[in-house]
Amino acid sequence: MKRMMITCLMLLSLYQLKAQETFGKASFTVPAGWQMTKNTETVTLEKALKKGVVCKIIISATEKGAVNTDADYLAYRTKNGGKGISYSNQKGAVIKYEADGLISFFSKGTTIQKMDKIHSYFYSLSNGSQTLYYQLLTNNNDCISEFNQFMETLTMELDNAGSANARARKASAAAPAAPAPMM
């Protein structure tokens, strides 16, 4: 019994090591059943579901420059948030989180694709000198649950003097960003 338990733990740890992906300063685990496509500018994670269901995560390459104010975030979202997506500009529509040396902003928008309402959950993540974005496009609450699990694995390399290889956990108890809300 003890041998079997040790073997299971070893296999589980090997699986976890294998499942971690790196893209620029970001590291993450691809959710089970999702397909990953990489190019120089983005990584796209997509889950094939029944026809008409959209379930897509986009992670950008890291860019120089910090996004640390609402105005910075709004300009960054305009540049990267996707064409045809309407975001609320009301007070409180942009939410800022700070923890562990990272700054994250979040806002929610919508678009119409093939007559279906698609929700966009757009996040920026900055380590003080560089920024990346990640975005969920979906019309399905199950997809949101899996995205929230994905966010628990997302990390960004800190860029502080003397700790260039330090990692900051993005989500969990001291998270700089909250989970995406259900529709």
Rank of each mutant, 00 (worst) to 15 (best):
L136N: 02
T40F: 08
V54M: 08
N141I: 02
A48W: 10
Q35C: 00
F150E: 00
K56R: 14
D159R: 09
E63P: 02
F122L: 12
L125Q: 05
S88H: 14
A168Y: 07
K64L: 10
L17F: 06
E152K: 10
T155I: 04
T29Q: 06
M115Q: 12
S120A: 14
N139P: 11
Y134M: 00
F106S: 05
K79H: 08
K50H: 15
I58A: 06
L132F: 00
L14V: 10
H119R: 09
S27D: 12
H119C: 02
K108R: 13
L49Q: 09
F106P: 01
S172C: 07
F147N: 00
I103W: 05
C8H: 10
L154F: 15
S145G: 09
N89M: 11
S124H: 06
N139E: 10
S27L: 03
N165A: 01
K56L: 03
M10S: 09
Q90N: 08
Y73F: 15
V43P: 02
E63N: 08
N89Q: 10
C8T: 11
T29E: 06
L136C: 04
M1V: 02
K51R: 11
Y123A: 04
G128K: 12
T44R: 14
N160W: 14
I57Y: 05
A171R: 15
E41F: 05
H119N: 13
L137G: 04
G82C: 07
S129V: 14
G128F: 15
T37I: 02
F105D: 06
A75I: 10
N165W: 09
F122D: 02
A71L: 05
I95C: 08
G65S: 08
Y73I: 02
L154H: 11
S104L: 11
M4L: 12
I144P: 00
A32D: 15
Q16D: 09
K170H: 10
C55T: 00
K64R: 11
E21G: 01
K114C: 01
A66G: 13
N89F: 07
E63V: 01
E98S: 08
F23P: 01
M10H: 12
G52W: 13
S27C: 07
M36K: 14
G52R: 12
I58T: 09
M4A: 06
N140I: 02
F147T: 00
A177M: 14
P181K: 15
T22M: 05
V30M: 07
G52K: 13
Y76K: 05
Y133N: 15
P181A: 14
A177I: 08
S145R: 13
M115S: 11
Q20S: 06
Y121E: 03
I103T: 15
E98C: 00
M5K: 13
S124G: 04
L9I: 09
K83E: 10
K79Y: 09
E98Q: 13
G128D: 13
